[in-house]
Structures are given as C-alpha cells and as structure tokens.
Design a protein around this nucleic acid. Structure first.
Length: 734
DNA sequence: TGTATTTATGTTTTT
DNA sequence: CATAAATACA
C-alpha cells in the first residue's frame, strides 16, 4: 500500500490511531501544540504527522524535526523510514545543537566565525573560564572556574551576550562578572572556538540580524516540529520562532510534567505560554497511556499531583493492573546493589532478557556500587555515558591532537599535548613561549613552529619544541585521511601508543579505550563513506550520554534519571530514593533547589517503567567517602499505600553485623561543643570549629595547633574529648 | 628545569 | 574519592 514517493497512503497512516492522535496527525498548517503525557504515543504521532505533511502539503525535504538527543533523532528517522522509506532520509531530523552547528558551518562568514572554528567542550570551557578570571585580574579564590562557567552559560542560554551583560550590570559584582565574561569571549574567539551555548546563541543572533538567511531557512523548512518543547531555553525558543515567523507552521510536542532541565536554562513557560504566543493554535491532549501498568501509572500520577504549579492532566490506561510498585529498603548501597544483582541473576536464569531492565539514579557517582555488584555477580551491563568516555584522559589526549590539526589556534589543545606524552617540555618553557607570543600580540602556535625566535628559551628547550613542531608538521597529512587511519597515525607518531603499551602491563584500560575510539571511528566511516577526520570530530563533539546505548544485546542499562527521559523499559529500578539525594539538595537552603523539578524528575523515572518498578533506598550510604545515615525520600510518602509493596531487607545482608558499632558514639558526646578541645592520635590537640548532628552520626570540624583544620565524622574518626585536667597532665610530659 | 610524590580541595543533573 | 595545585627530588 505504498504510493509512488514511498510514503504510505492515508489508511496506512491513520488505521491504528485513536481520535486524538489522528487529530494531531491530520493537522497541517498553523501552530499546533501536542500536550502528550508520558507513554501516550507521542513519537508515533510525530512520525505519522511528518509523513502526512510530506504526503499532502509539502515534501520531506522541507520538513525539520528537532529532538532532544541524537539518539532520539536517529530513532525517529528510522521509524519514518520503516513507514516511508526514502522520505525519512530526506527530512532533516536532528538536535538543536547539531542543526545550529551545521548552519553556522555553512554560514560562518555571516556569523562572524572563522572557517576553522571548532566546538569547545565543557572541560575546555572551564579552562577558558579560569584564564578569563586571570585576565580580568581577579583572584581564583572568589571566582571559581566552575561558578564563572555556569554564570556565563546561564547568560548565554537567556540570550544575554557579554555586552548586554555589561549594560545591564547594576552593582560591582555584576560589573565584575561582565568583565570576566568579556575576557572569556575574547579568549574563545582568539582560539577560534565556540562553546555549546554559543551554537544556540550565535545562531539565534544570526537569524535575528540576517533577514535574508531567515527567509531562506523559512522557505527551506516549511514545517517545523519540536519535540520535548518543555525543555527548550530562550535561545532555542527564539530560533524556532524565527524560522517559523511568517508561515507559523510550528508544531511543539511535550509535557510540562517532564520538564527537568530548568537548571540548564530551560523555561517551562515556553510550553505553558504556547497558546498565548500563537493565536489560533490548535491544542491536542494525549492522556491515554499505552506504556505502563495501572499501578505504576497511578503511583506516578499520585506523586506528580503533589506539584502546586501544574497544568492539570489525568493519565489513564486500559493496560493490566500489574504488580505493586516495590519499595526496597536495605542497609547500605552494597546491599542495595547486590540485592538487585541477585534478582537480575535469577531473572536471567529464568530465561528473561536483561535488555529489558534499566537502573536509574540521580547522580552518576551512584552507578559505581551497582557496577561493582554486577561485575561480582556476572551481570552484563552498559552505562549510558558517552560523554564520560570522551572525558577520559587518554581519549582527550588523542582528541586534542585531532582538534589542533583542524584548528591550530586552539591553545587549550596545544598546551595539553605539547608535553603529552612527556617530551621534556615543562611549565617554564610553555610559559615562556606564551609570554613571548603575548608580548608581540601573536599566537602561541607561531612560536612553537619558530622556537629559536623566543629569546628566553635555552638551546635544549628550543630543540625539544622544534622536534614537537616537526611531529605536528608530519601529522598534517592525517587530516586528509579517513578518521580511523588518521587516528592510528596520530596515536603511533605522537608516541602515545608507545606510552600506553608500556603502561599496559599495569593498566590496560587506556589502551583498550583508545582502541574503542578507533573502533568508533571505523563504525562512523562505515555509516558515512567519504567521511573526513573533521566530520568525525564534529560528530563526536556533539554526542550526548544516551547516544551511546545499544539495544537488545542482553545487557542491563544503567543511567541517570535525566538521561532516561524519552526512553522506556519493561523493568525499572530506581535507586537512592533518600532525603537529600532525590530530591537532591546540596545543603539546607540551597538557592538552586527546586523541589517541584526534582519531583518531575522522579515522575519521569517512574513513568519509564512498563511492567515492573522498584524504588529503593538505604539506611546508610557513602557520600564523599564517609558513610552517612539516610532517611527515606519524602516522595515515597506521597505514593498511595495501595499501590505499594514494601520490602524490608534490613539486617538480611551478610555483613550487617557491622551496624552494631556504627551507632556507637562516645558516651560524653553531649558535652562536645563548638570550642571544646579534642585529641586526635596522629594530629594532636585541636579545637572544634563547628559540630552538628547528622542522624546517628556527628560531623565536626577541628582546627589543630598546626593551624590545619579537618572535618571528621563520628563514630569513624579517632577523636576523644579532652578536659583541662588532662591538658595540664599532658603538659608535664614535655 | 622537569618529573614524581604528596597534599589540599571540592562536587548534580547535560547538549 | 578524584583531580588539581604545591612540594620534594633528580
């Protein structure tokens, strides 16, 4: 039943849709908002609608569909291709970031960018932020790179450029941030770099100022679909609206209850105001859930109803009632993980497919205990963390060579690899080259290729730098080779290979990782023939965490709650449902704390589950190396008792005998107070700076006579209260 | 002057 | 607990 274009006819597109879904699919021109609850067949609606548009009012070539992750984009393209064949490959389906990147590449001149600009990742951003603080003559003490980075990132996400920031600054603090922001922009532009936020900001600015380009894009993309609209920020909002300014053919899909990126500048108001923004917008609500059992759905609904600022929506399903949602309580993270591992081993032995199972957590660091238990029990797993992989030292080293070859102005990469592997070029030499270059207002790389003209450099240093320059010169050819060939050449000629081979006897991970990198490049070549090293570099720099996960290979999938958005699994475990962890709160009174967003995050996690859902929490959990007493998440109390089955495994574990002494605080603990003197076996006598009770534990900071201070956790620390008698007794010893 | 070892410090979530 | 800066050593 396919038409000549390969697009299925009407029956094919509509036969299995509900009335609501069909209404959204049938809509062609003008603004459309699809408010789709979790698991209500949103993706199905989007793909069908794209095909219907391509068949009735436009061609695939003129359709732009924007998704949240690259993975979602390729899945959507695949789904369209299953139904519509060629039409899928002709549509533009991508993320905001990759769309902007491509457009900025093509129109780099109009955007005021050099033709060899590269994208700097968040680690590079931090280094630039640090350099910017130094350039603005501020102390790194008060201006941590991380803080500066987040201030600048937030500004860019709200379309505030450095000059606007400077104009709007009202007090000394803001004027100072403006200076740092300006320095940051200057450094970035000197190095021909743009950061992630720039991709959106620069594109939005370009569309605003260049009417020709705007019209050209609007003509090219007659119909625009934007998924996960509840997580768009100001820049993305502006881009979407500029592209659809005249024809108003904007279709937004999303769910305010799943807005979880407020901290990144996402404005939930974008979706809540859609109808005000667009006079005559059609609104379709999808509230029938096809994914989860009744019990999972009603537990999740009960939770989300505790949010005050919420657009009313009631999810319902005709699915089976299903099993109750389990709430699992264990002693500590070790028990939690091994309990899950044991359950999964039993499932596997029953012949169940572990690709159906996912484990979610609030913090990446929580995956460690689970991974250890899975390794011990022999459960195959994968962790969704593409970014994490690309953050490994050895991978960053290799990529720094690649980036420098593509963009010689990239000083971050140059300083990273000039002595990696070590080739005798130390900090002093590097500082001297940079100082000389700065004094002549030239760039560092010019003097790497001409070290003899740096007067402060000794002969030995000149020779070493010259050798490095020769190496780089030789690697130039790599840029024209296929990605995998180029990588192999870089790794071998740079000396990284030899270094890792030597190291491999002790630690083979780096070598394995680099080989995995080459495999990834090879896979990329197979999908994109004729791909250059640059193409591959662009691809990798825009990858996200979930983009790396593979399906149906029998492995359990581990990921953060944020990464889980948009996915579904028959069996879901959510770990760490404890106060302070989910909802996450760094310290009491944390100004960035948003309880409703945390609740939405929990809701997102729960609604990923199709058949079985287990929420787990512990009595004790290691945080930053010390075991802390935990209380269960308030969210657990918001779930209806009828849908819950409590599983209490306290004391069941093998090493639970430990718990006896965990609670043993010193007898005289009530006398410990700020200002009291304590003795530490190794550090001697000190005074308590502050002390506070934390569940069954006591945290305190002690300043010793040496001036050093340290925080301790009782009962683990070897501390004793000393009274004045003892001090005077001790005094006789000297 | 470069490198290895120790010591201090600081931490969500991600395109 | 992990990474980055400060120090000791070669």
């Amino acid at each position: 039943m396919f038409t000549a274009s390969g697009i299925p006819n009407t029956d094919e597109l509509f036969s299995d849709l509900t009335d609501d879904q069909a209404q959204a699919v049938r809509h062609t021109d003008g603004p459309l908002l699809v408010l789709a609850g979790a698991g209500c067949g949103k993706t199905r609606v989007i793909t069908r609608r794209a095909l219907n548009l391509a068949r009735t009012v436009t061609s695939p070539h003129n359709i732009l569909a924007i998704t949240f992750t690259n993975k979602a984009a390729s899945e959507m393209r695949e789904r369209i291709m299953v139904l519509g064949g060629r039409a899928g490959s002709e549509m533009t389906v991508c993320t905001f970031h990759s769309l902007c990147y491509r457009l900025l590449r093509i129109h780099h001149e109009r955007a005021g960018l050099p033709d060899d600009f590269t994208v700097f990742d968040s680690a590079d951003q931090r280094k630039i932020a640090k350099a910017a603080v130094a350039r603005a003559h501020l102390s790194a003490e008060n201006w941590s790179p991380a803080r500066v980075q987040s201030l600048i990132s937030n500004a860019k996400n709200s379309m505030v450029t450095a000059s606007i920031y400077a104009e709007q600054a009202v007090d000394w603090s803001e004027r100072t941030v403006a200076k740092v922001y300006e320095a940051y922009e200057a450094i970035l532009s000197e190095q021909h770099g743009v950061d992630f936020d720039d991709l959106l900001l620069k594109m939005a600015l370009l569309l605003k100022q260049d009417e020709d380009l705007r019209q050209c894009l609007e003509r090219r993309y007659s119909h625009v679909l934007i998924d996960e609209y509840q997580d768009t920020n100001s820049a993305q909002y502006l881009i979407a609206h500029l592209i659809t300014e005249q024809n108003k053919n904007i279709c937004a899909t999303g769910d305010p209850d799943q807005s979880i990126y407020g901290w990144r500048g996402a404005d939930i108001g974008n979706i809540l105001r859609f109808e005000e923004d667009h006079a005559g917008a059609q609104v379709v609500r999808l509230e029938r859930n096809y994914r989860s059992t009744q019990r999972i759905l009603s537990a999740a609904s009960a939770l989300i109803e505790h949010n005050q600022q919420r657009k009313e929506k009631t999810l319902w399903t005709k699915n089976d009632e299903g099993a109750r949602v389990r709430v699992l309580l264990t002693d500590d993270a070790g028990e939690e993980s091994s309990t899950i591992a044991d359950e999964l081993a039993a499932r596997r032995d029953r012949g169940e497919d572990l690709s159906d199972v996912a484990v979610f957590y609030r913090l990446n660091s929580l995956s460690r205990a689970v991974e250890e238990a899975f390794l011990k029990t022999g459960i195959a797993y994968q962790v969704a963390r593409g970014v994490e992989f690309y953050n490994r030292k050895e991978i960053k080293d290799v990529l720094a060579y690649v980036r420098l070859l593509i963009n010689v102005h990239d000083e971050v990469s140059l300083t990273r690899i000039i002595n990696t592997p070590t080739r005798g070029i130390g900090k002093t030499t590097i500082d001297r080259i940079i100082a000389h270059a700065r004094s002549l207002e030239k760039e560092m790389f010019e003097f790497v290729f001409e070290p003899q003209s740096v007067p402060t450099l000794k002969r030995a240093a000149v020779a070493k730098v010259a050798a490095f320059a020769t190496l780089l010169g030789g690697l130039r050819h790599a840029i024209d080779e296929s990605p995998s060939t180029a990588l192999a050449r870089i790794i071998s000629e740079s000396g990284l290979q030899a270094d890792m081979n030597k190291l491999a006897e002790v630690d083979s991970d780096p070598l394995d990782n680099v080989n995995e990198l080459i495999n990834a490049a090879t896979a990329f070549e197979q999908e994109h023939s004729e791909a250059t090293l640059r193409d591959w570099m662009e691809y990798t720099s825009l990858l996200g965490d979930v983009d790396s996960i593979e399906e149906g290979d029998g492995r359990v999938t581990l990921m953060t709650l944020h990464a889980a958005k948009g996915l579904e699994f028959p069996v879901v475990y959510m770990i760490g449902l404890e106060d302070g962890l989910l909802p996450f709160q760094r310290e009491p009174g944390d100004p960035t704390y948003d309880e409703e967003e945390e609740r939405r995050l929990c809701f997102v996690g729960m609604t990923r589950a199709k058949r079985e859902l287990t929420l787990s929490h512990c009595d004790y959990r290691m945080v930053r190396g010390v075991s802390e007493r935990k209380t269960k998440s308030a969210f657990l109390d918001e779930l209806p008792a009828g849908e819950i089955e409590k599983v209490d495994l306290i004391g069941e574990g093998a090493d639970s005998s430990r718990r006896g002494w965990l609670d043993d605080l010193p007898d005289d603990i009530e006398e410990w107070a700020q200002g009291s003197l304590v003795r530490h076996d190794e550090r001697g006598i000190g005074r308590i700076v502050w002390i506070r009770r934390n569940g069954a534990q006591v945290h305190l900071e002690v300043q010793f006579q040496t001036g050093a201070s340290r925080t301790f956790v009782l009962p683990f620390a070897d501390l004793q209260l000393v009274d004045f008698d003892e001090i005077s007794e001790g005094a006789f010893d000297f």
